[in-house]
Amino acid sequence: MKSDISIKWLGNLSKIKFDDDGLKKMAADMQSIMTLMDSLLLVEPVEFEDGTEFCGLDALRADTVRDSFDPELLVSQAKDSKDGCFVIPKIL
């Protein structure tokens, strides 16, 4: 793993908060995992012609209005909601 990457910074990027013990454990695990991933750096990805076809990816659906879900049903699983909207803690 590249030495200029900090696990704390990566945790911020991943929106996961680790305590000190968690940071140490994750650092050790990531070191092992990245040693395996770094094995690819020795493989030269030569240019190739991808002959495989992918189905459906260009088959866009028609842009038509359809029935959707009741907003009250969709917010019913949220921890906090009001008038069909999600409620979150204050940002400022």
Binding site: L10, G11, K15, I16, K17, M26, D29, M30, I88, I91
Partner: peptide, 25 residues
């Protein structure tokens, strides 16, 4: 912001966090 990161830290197990960290990297 604390709500998001704590929800993810306490809601996800270790293996899931490991994969998210690898993916972010």
């Amino acid at each position: 912001f604390d709500m998001i990161s704590k929800s993810r830290d306490e809601g996800f197990g270790w293996e899931v966090k490991r994969r998210i960290m690898l993916g972010s990297y």
